[in-house]
C-alpha cells in the first residue's frame, strides 16, 4: 500500500458517499450539489488511473455542464421542491398504481447486482498494474480517435448535433404553442 493507494481509497470513499447522498437527500437541490461532488470524485479517480485528459474533460463536461443544466432543469420545473420535501403531495392515485416501486424489489435488485458484481470481480484473475504508464494520454487518445475510431467519432458528433436540435425543438415547440 503506497500513498497513492490511500489517496485512491479516500477519493473512492468520498465519491461513493456523495453518490449515496445523491440518492437519499431529501431536497433535490442538495442532491444536485452532491452529484457535482460525485463527478469531482470520479474525475479524481480518473486522474489516479492516469487518465489526465479524461479527468479534465470530466470536470468540464460533467461538473461544468451537466450539473449546471440539471440545476437549471430543477429551477425551471420544480420550484416547490426547492423549498423542501413534499413527501405525500399527489401520492394518492399514483403510489397505489405503481405498487412495485416502493416495495423491497428495487433495493433487492440493486444490492443483488452490486453483490454479484463484487463477487465476480473478486473471483477473477486480474493483471497486476503495470509499473509505468504513458504520460502522453491526450496524444494516444487523439490518435485513436482520429484514425481507428474516426467513424464513431463522426457519428458521435452527429448524435450531439441531433440532440442539440432535438432539445431545442422540444423546448421551443411548447413555447410557441402557448
Amino acid at each position: 500500500m503506497t500513498v497513492t493507494d490511500w489517496v485512491f481509497l479516500a477519493v473512492a470513499a468520498v465519491t461513493l458517499f456523495s453518490a449515496y447522498r445523491v440518492v437519499v437527500s431529501r431536497k433535490i437541490m442538495h442532491a444536485a450539489l452532491w452529484l457535482g461532488l460525485t463527478f469531482f470524485g470520479v474525475a479524481g479517480i480518473f486522474l489516479l488511473l492516469g487518465a489526465d485528459f479524461l479527468a479534465a474533460a470530466q470536470v468540464l463536461v460533467y461538473v461544468g455542464a451537466v450539473t449546471t443544466i440539471i440545476i437549471f432543469g430543477i429551477m425551471l420545473s420544480t420550484p416547490e421542491e426547492l423549498r423542501g420535501p413534499s413527501p405525500e403531495a399527489g401520492s394518492d392515485a399514483a403510489s397505489s398504481a405503481a405498487p412495485t416501486r416502493r416495495s423491497f424489489l428495487p433495493l433487492v435488485t440493486a444490492i443483488g447486482f452490486a453483490a454479484v458484481m463484487v463477487a465476480l470481480v473478486n473471483r477473477g484473475e486480474w493483471p497486476s498494474p503495470p509499473g509505468s504508464v504513458s504520460t502522453d494520454t491526450p496524444r494516444l487518445l487523439g490518435e485513436a480517435l482520429f484514425t481507428r475510431f474516426v467513424i464513431p467519432f463522426e457519428v458521435a458528433s452527429v448524435v450531439l448535433l441531433v440532440a442539440l436540435v432535438g432539445a431545442i425543438a422540444l423546448a421551443l415547440k411548447e413555447e410557441s404553442g402557448q
Binding site: A97, R101, L105, T109, V116
Partner: peptide
Amino acid sequence: QTGYVQSYVLALFVTVVVGLLVFA
C-alpha cells in the same frame, strides 16, 4: 403494462441480475 417507466426498468434489472447469477 403499467405505463410506469420504472416498472419496466425494474423488470429489466431483475432480469439482468438473474442472468448474471446464472452466468456466474
